[in-house]
Design a protein around this nucleic acid. Structure first.
Lengths: 359, 359
DNA sequence: ACGCAATAAGAGACCGGTCTCTTTTAAAAA
DNA sequence: TTTTTAAAAGAGACCGGTCTCTTATTGCGT
């Protein structure tokens, strides 16, 4: 009767050592690729390992070494092309350096983000990359820092947290985009963002806890005021958290008595829904309404007309933040770096002069 | 002088036990949430844990329990919206069941896929979800199975591997799409796919090792032959592996003497490039050329005209395969299931009758 | 009042690696 | 040939949890 192997106990160093007639320590040296062993013994152990089909238990390895070779990444929403491209950049940089990535998405909810961070720390990731969904409550991020694991921030800076950070100049680029609109003659410009606040109505910057969005709104408002626009705050629309919500916001925006002649969208997912609503209402771009969006998503170049976009270097953003983190993992003692990547605007065909409905 | 804590040794159960004046075993019972402890002691231990800011080491926990609570996922390319949406489905189902996801992308290269699988097994994931990039070499997938860890296949079935699998009826849906084109009068239809083969020229189905694509081509050819199209094999184009390659393929296809009047694209990333090339060459859709693509990507509904697509239930695909795997992880003894999810075609405006250039 | 069972806490092995320290072996120096 | 020293192999502790087994305490029936 053959051996009935009911429970698949996996092959360990001890098993290999026994088969190769050496001590556990020696087998471990060969299998772990450390220390020093004679070529003869090495060959024997390797042969035994192959014969038994030995697979190292990375868990056990991580436990003793304290290193897992894993980088934890917490982003807002993997489905958003912005994040999936950034994650791609992170993964590529990580793999190149021999690290792996474990991904969690927070859905932009602080509670989920906290849970994810806690879990990743528990899994003893070597370092974390986070897109903090809120600047108010960052205790969990401080905890990471305190736990001795390096943390790097992606796309959103936190002034209070002195860690490696890679962002773009959100304020500046929002200003440039807004100026394009203002220069085209627009005086009724709306800004639509996914970020929400108590009351769902924009009042002031103090309500906005997502740093990148606050920067953008700040830039937007600054240029609007410069252009002599009265009460531009009234044209900031919050809460485009999902396609359905975005449609609601866009519908309200476009059906009101004081319909804007131009819209600046905070991300491409929002812009896509706005575009659909515009189409659906029979409005023309750019004759009836001008549109600029953050993120050079696929679709923006194939619409008629193609959309003018703020082209953030998303892949590079991910790649850079990963590289910064890895540098830190390797023991780089330099003070925290705040990298701001250059951003450009791709002018396409979605901006034109406003048609003056008042006249 | 204060304690200079140079190395951040983390707090362990023993530390908590000592602080609470109980044995390590008792503290572990409280902290691990198993066994039985009196309320008084529990309170003490919890207090001590909080005071010391104890964080369980999931690694150590996994090592003894043999369970990591992680599902490993290997997909072709995270950046492709198809996969990122599927991954979203997987993540959602996983989180709902208390599992986490560790993600690796193979770039559709079998060697990378093998390395990823090896690594994930090493990390002792509880189960794996794989989008096998090749049906030829599946030794690493058999290994997973042999290692006792459940495996589930996403989007691509492997006849030789009897594991839980979730796909769509690729052959059937390709037939339906091709028939739409044939019924519109097209007799010169091209099929463009990312899959490549030796010689980069399509000869027969035996060259194609990606099951879903083989099915699709099979369906495509069957309908073409039914429609009396001569040598439809000549219209299958391989190697659209990247945007640049796709442009090359599309350029060649559209500049030849025998330009097709309709194209069926194997995924939305390919279709997007083809769309751009068509535009760039000044051709009109659908007057000069009809286009259908797999995957109802964002952009397909906002072009002019919008694109007719094969609407695979991508999110559900991911969700289902994760649910199947989790069911297995919980010890479900049922034989492997092969789920085929229903797929529909969204007819939009990219299909029209061919303009007969020969007349 | 006594024995018995149930309950709560403790002791220590174990998981599968790494790593330090010790012992053995072989080569080089005297 | 003997001593010195380096190299190679072995023994066993350790990482931080879980879990089995043992021991101490308490309540209960009779």
């Amino acid at each position: 009767m053959k051996k009935t192997a009911p429970k698949t106990r996996s092959i360990t160093v001890s098993d290999v050592a026994r088969a190769a007639n050496v001590s556990k320590a020696t087998a471990a040296r060969v299998l772990g690729g450390y220390g020093v062993v004679s070529d003869m013994i090495r060959t024997d152990v390797m042969a035994a390992a192959k014969a038994l089909d030995y697979r190292p238990n990375e868990l056990a390895r991580s436990m003793t070494t304290g290193r897992s070779g894993i980088i934890g990444v917490v982003v807002g929403d993997i489905e958003n092309p912005f994040f999936s491209l950034a994650v791609r950049g992170i993964s590529d940089a990580a793999r190149a350096a021999g690290f792996n990535v474990i991904l969690a998405n927070s859905g932009e909810r602080i509670e989920v983000e906290k849970a994810a961070v806690r879990l990743l720390i528990g899994k003893r990731v070597d370092g974390l990359i986070v897109t903090p969904s809120e600047s108010r409550d960052i205790s969990h991020l401080r905890d990471i820092h305190r736990s001795g694991r390096p943390l790097a921030l992606l796309d959103r800076a936190l002034p209070d947290l002195d860690v490696d950070t890679v962002t773009v100049d959100d304020r500046g680029i929002a200003m440039r985009a807004t100026r394009i609109l203002a220069d085209a003659g627009h005086r009724n410009i709306a800004y639509v963002t996914a970020v929400d606040a108590a009351g769902h109505e924009y009042r002031d910057l103090g309500q906005i806890y997502t740093s990148s969005v606050r920067e953008r709104i700040d830039g937007f408002l600054t240029v609007c005021r410069d252009a002599g626009i009265d009460r531009p705050e009234n044209h900031v629309r919050l809460g485009a958290t999902s396609p359905a919500e975005t449609r609601r916001v866009a519908d309200k925006l476009l059906s009101g008595p004081n319909r804007p002649t131009a819209i600046l969208a905070s991300d491409s997912v929002i812009a896509l829904e706005i575009f659909k609503v515009i189409r659906q209402r029979g409005l023309r771009i750019p004759e009836d309404i001008s549109l600029i969006t953050f993120h050079d998503a696929d679709w923006t170049s194939v619409t008629t007309p193609p959309i003018t976009v703020i082209d953030q270097p998303v892949y590079a953003l991910g790649k850079s933040v990963a590289e910064l983190l890895i540098r830190r993992l390797k023991g780089d003692p330099r003070p925290a770096e705040r990298l701001i990547l250059p951003t450009s605007i791709v002018e396409r065909g979605s901006v034109g002069p406003p048609t003056n409905r008042e006249l």
